[in-house]
Nucleic acid binder design. Structure first.
Length: 735
DNA sequence: ACGTTTTTTATCTAGACAGCATGTC
DNA sequence: CTAGATAAAAAACGT
C-alpha cells in the first residue's frame, strides 16, 4: 500500500463524516484530501484529475451529500456508459442509507420520471431530459460529470459540452464537479467550469510500465530483464509469468478475431495448468448463457473451464458478464479482450499486456493515442490483491524500445480539446437550446455558446453557428426572423425523439427513391440514418448483398448507380434487419452474415428507436398517416423480431418472438384466441411452462385461475421429478 | 484432363449513446 | 508509411 493517506480533517462536515463511516473510509487518498481542502464540501466547482481507482467516486459522493444537505434540490451523476451507470447505482446504495433515494436514468428504461434526489444518467439521457424539462438545470444543486475529458470525443464530446454550458448558463448556482483522467490541461477545464483543479497522480496500486521486445522487458530507466521463454509465444509467456505468481493477465488486442484465436491457443497450451474446479463451474454456467449462438456459448464455456477467456462487444451481455464474473472470481486467469474492457467495467488485472499499440481506422493502421494507452495501462493492479500492477506494451519488429518508452510511458496524454465546432455538433447544440424555449434571440444562443470550452479555446465560432442555424432553417427545423430563431413543430419533435437533425433531409431525399410498401426499402431507409449503427459489409459479401437487393427491392438497384462502402453497410444492415423481422434465428443470422449477437442487439435496438422517431416526424414532412403507421409497425416488429401477425401476441409479458410463434402455430393467433384457452393446453406447448402460462392468463385477467393452474402443474412436475430421482432436467422453469 | 496439394495473393481489422413505455428463452 | 491471420485464387504437382 503506497503512502499518501490522510486523516479526515477535523473541519470536515458531519455529512462527510457519516458518509466516510458508512462507506468504511478511514483514511483519505491524496486526491480526496486535496478535493476537501479545495472546497468540494462548500460547493466549489472542481475538476479532479486523477487515475482510476484513486477514489474519485467518494469525492463525488461528498459533493452530493453536502450539496443536498446544504441547498436541497437534486443531484445528477453523469456517466459516459450505461454499464458505468449500473455500476455506480449499486455503489451508491450508501446514499440510500443516508436517506437519499437514487434513481438511474438511461435509455434502457426509466423508473418513472426521475424525481429522486439523486439521479445517475448518461450524458445523452441528461441532455434529452434537459430538452424536455429545462427546469432540471435550475433544480440541480450538484452535477457530477464523470470522465469529463470526454469533451474531446469527436462524436459525444459536443453533447457533453452542451450539457455543461447550459448548466453554466443557468445563473451558476449549480456545483459542477468534473472527474477526469489525468490530462495536461485539467486547469483549463477547471477554468471553463469556473472552478479550480485538483491534480494528483496518486494510485492505490503502484504501476510499473514496460516495453517488450525480443523477450526483454525494458523499463523507463533504461534497464531490462529477460523473460523466460517457455512456449515461445510471447502472449503466453508474458501471461504465464504473472499467473505463476498468483496474478491475472489481461491482454488487449486490436481485433476480435485475434482475441478469439489467441484465447483458443492459450486454452490449448495452458488449459492443464489453469483449469480448476471453479473454472469448470464458471464454464458450465457460461454454457447455459441465454441469447447466444450455441457454438459461441460452447466455445467460450470450454475456454473458461480452461481458465482462459476472450471478451468483445459482439458477445451477448450474458456471456460478457460470465467472463467478467469468472475473471473477478479468479477462476479465469487470462483474458484476451478488445478495448471493451479498457473503459467502463471495473475489471483490473495484475498484468496488462498491450498486444499491439496500433489500431485500424478507415482502412489505415494508426498508433493509438497516449490517452488510450494510459487508459489500458491503468487497468493494471488489483487494489487489495496486488502489491503492484504491470503494463507491458509489445513492440513491433522495427521499433526501438526507447521510442515507445518516450512515446507512451513517459509521454503525457493528449490535451483535452473541444470538438464542438463541427456542423453536426453545433446543429445538435443549437437545437438543444431553441427546442425547449420555443423562440430565442441569436444573442442568447451566442451567450450559451460563449460558455463552451470551444469558445475558451478558440473563440466564439460565429460563422459555423450561423451555418448551423441556416441548416436547421433550410431543413425546416427552425425559423429565422431577424435575429430571432424559433423551433418549428418539426424541430421540437426532432429534439424530443433525439434524432440527429440531419435525419430530416436524408429522410426526405431517400423517400423519393423508395416505396413505403416495401419492407426492405423501409429498413434501408432506417439504415441510412446518421444515428444508425451500421454493420460493415466486407468486399466478399458484395455479391451476396446485390443478390439480396435484387430479391428484396429490384427498383433500388436501378435507382442507385453505385454503392460505396457506406451504402453497402446500410444494405447489409437492412438485410440483417429483414431476416430479424422475418423471425430468422440469431444462430442463422450469425452463420449467414457473421453478425454476432451483441452487434445484432445493438443494431436492433437502434433501428427500433430510429423507426419510431421517423414515424413521429413523418407527419411534419407531409407524409401520409399510412407512412407513419408503417414505420411505427416496423419499429415494433424490429423491437420484437417478428412478422406482423405476431405483434398482438408479443405484447403479452413473458412472450417474445419464439413463444409467440409457438402459440401462433398452435392455433392461438390472437389475444382473443387465448382468452378462452385452457391452462393445461398452454402448458403442454414447448417452451411454455407453468410460469409462462400463468403470465399469459394473468395478462388476460384470469388471475385466480392462472395461479391455481400454475401451482397445480408445478406440484405435479416436482412430484414426477422426485419420482424420477431428481437428476432429470426440468423442461421449464420460467421466471 | 482432372483432382489434390502447395504457394501466392487479397482481404480484413474497436466500441456504443439516444425515444417511449414495460419485461426474453 | 507499418502487421499478421485467414480466406480465396492461382499455380504446381501427381495420376
Amino acid at each position: 500500500m503506497p503512502t499518501g493517506l490522510y486523516d479526515i480533517p477535523s473541519w470536515a462536515t458531519n455529512e462527510t463524516r457519516s458518509l466516510a463511516k458508512l462507506s468504511g473510509v478511514e483514511k483519505l487518498f491524496e486526491p480526496q484530501y486535496m478535493a476537501l481542502e479545495t472546497g468540494v464540501e462548500r460547493g466549489e466547482n472542481l475538476v479532479v484529475a486523477a487515475p482510476t481507482g484513486s477514489g474519485k467516486t467518494f469525492i463525488a459522493l461528498v459533493a452530493i451529500v453536502n450539496g443536498l444537505a446544504r441547498r436541497g434540490g437534486r443531484a445528477f451523476y453523469l456517466v459516459p456508459l450505461k454499464s458505468v451507470a449500473y455500476e455506480k447505482y449499486s455503489s451508491f446504495s450508501i446514499l440510500a442509507r443516508m436517506g437519499f433515494r437514487v434513481k438511474i436514468s438511461v435509455g434502457d428504461f426509466r423508473e418513472g420520471p426521475p424525481e429522486a434526489p439523486v439521479t445517475i444518467a448518461t450524458y445523452e439521457k441528461f441532455d434529452s431530459l434537459l430538452r424536455v424539462s429545462p427546469s432540471l438545470a435550475r433544480d440541480a444543486s450538484v452535477v457530477v460529470v464523470d470522465e469529463i475529458h470526454n469533451v474531446s470525443d469527436p462524436k459525444r464530446g459536443p453533447i457533453l459540452e452542451s450539457i455543461v454550458s447550459r448548466i453554466l448558463a443557468n445563473t451558476g448556482e449549480t456545483q459542477i464537479l468534473g472527474l477526469s483522467a489525468t490530462v495536461p490541461n485539467a486547469g483549463e477545464i477547471a477554468e471553463w467550469i469556473g472552478g479550480r483543479s485538483v491534480e494528483s497522480s496518486w494510485r492505490p496500486v503502484p504501476l510499473r510500465e514496460y516495453v517488450f521486445k525480443e523477450y526483454r522487458l525494458y523499463s523507463p530507466g533504461g534497464s531490462w530483464r529477460e523473460v523466460p521463454r517457455v512456449y515461445g509465444l510471447y502472449d503466453l509467456d508474458l501471461a504465464v509469468e504473472t499467473v505463476e505468481e498468483g496474478g491475472q493477465a489481461l491482454v488487449f488486442t486490436y481485433s476480435r478475431r485475434r482475441a478469439v484465436t489467441l484465447a483458443k491457443r492459450a486454452a490449448r497450451k495452458l488449459g492443464r495448468r489453469l483449469s480448476s474446479r471453479e473454472a469448470r463451474e464458471y464454464g458450465a454456467e457460461a454454457s447455459r448463457a441465454e441469447g447466444a449462438p450455441r457454438s459461441v456459448a460452447d466455445e467460450l464455456a470450454s475456454l473458461i473451464a480452461a481458465g482462459v477467456a476472450y471478451h468483445h462487444a459482439g458477445l451477448p451481455p450474458s456471456l460478457r458478464r460470465a467472463v467478467e464474473d469468472a475473471f473477478r472470481a479468479g477462476a479465469v486467469r487470462v483474458v484476451y479482450s478488445t478495448p471493451t474492457l479498457a473503459a467502463g467495467v471495473n475489471m483490473p488485472a495484475r498484468r496488462v499486456i498491450i498486444d499491439s499499440y496500433y489500431r485500424y481506422e478507415a482502412g489505415f493502421r494508426e498508433p493509438i493515442r497516449v490517452a488510450e494507452y494510459k487508459q489500458m495501462a491503468g487497468r493494471a493492479g488489483r487494489p487489495g490483491l496486488d502489491d503492484y500492477g504491470e503494463a507491458v506494451i509489445v513492440a513491433e519488429r522495427m521499433d526501438r524500445p526507447e521510442d515507445l518508452i518516450a512515446g507512451y510511458i513517459q509521454a503525457p496524454p493528449e490535451r483535452v480539446e473541444s470538438r464542438l465546432a463541427g456542423l453536426r455538433g453545433l446543429r445538435h447544440f443549437i437545437l438543444g437550446i431553441i427546442a425547449p424555449e420555443g423562440e430565442v434571440g441569436i444573442e442568447s444562443i451566442e451567450r450559451v455558446a460563449g460558455l463552451t470550452l470551444y469558445s475558451r479555446q478558440r473563440g466564439l465560432p460565429r460563422e459555423i453557428i450561423a451555418r448551423a442555424i441556416e441548416d436547421l432553417s433550410i431543413w425546416g427545423l427552425a425559423e429565422v426572423e431577424g435575429d430571432r430563431v424559433a423551433a418549428t413543430g418539426l424541430g421540437r419533435e426532432v429534439a424530443a425523439v433525439y434524432l440527429d437533425p440531419e435525419s430530416v433531409p436524408i429522410f426526405k431525399h431517400e423517400a423519393r427513391y423508395l416505396s413505403f410498401d416495401n419492407e426492405f426499402d423501409i429498413l434501408y431507409l432506417i439504415s441510412t440514418m446518421p444515428d444508425m449503427v451500421k454493420l460493415a459489409a466486407t468486399r466478399r459479401e458484395e455479391e451476396k448483398l446485390l443478390e439480396a437487393i435484387l430479391d428484396a427491392s429490384p427498383r433500388m438497384l436501378s435507382s442507385v448507380d453505385w454503392l460505396g462502402p457506406e451504402e453497402m453497410a446500410a444494405v447489409k444492415t437492412a438485410v440483417v434487419l429483414k431476416l430479424w423481422i422475418e423471425e430468422a434465428s440469431e444462430d442463422r443470422i450469425y452463420s449467414e452474415w457473421g453478425v454476432h449477437t451483441g452487434d445484432l442487439l445493438n443494431v436492433v435496438s437502434t433501428a427500433e428507436w430510429i423507426a419510431a422517431g421517423l414515424s413521429r416526424i413523418a407527419p411534419y414532412l407531409g407524409f401520409s398517416t399510412e407512412v407513419s403507421q408503417n414505420l411505427s409497425i416496423t419499429s415494433r416488429r424490429i423491437k420484437h423480431g417478428v412478422k406482423p401477425e405476431l405483434l398482438p401476441l408479443v405484447s403479452i409479458p413473458g412472450v417474445g418472438r419464439v413463444r409467440a410463434r409457438i402459440l401462433f402455430n398452435a392455433g392461438y393467433k390472437s389475444i382473443h384466441d387465448l382468452a378462452t384457452a385452457r391452462a393445461e393446453d398452454l402448458m403442454r406447448l414447448p417452451l411454455i411452462g407453468p410460469s409462462t402460462a400463468r403470465q399469459i392468463l394473468e395478462f388476460l385477467g384470469r388471475v385466480d385461475e392462472a395461479r391455481l393452474a400454475e401451482a397445480r402443474e408445478t406440484l405435479a412436475r416436482k412430484g414426477l421429478l422426485t419420482y424420477l430421482e431428481g437428476d432429470a432436467v426440468a423442461g421449464e422453469e420460467g421466471e
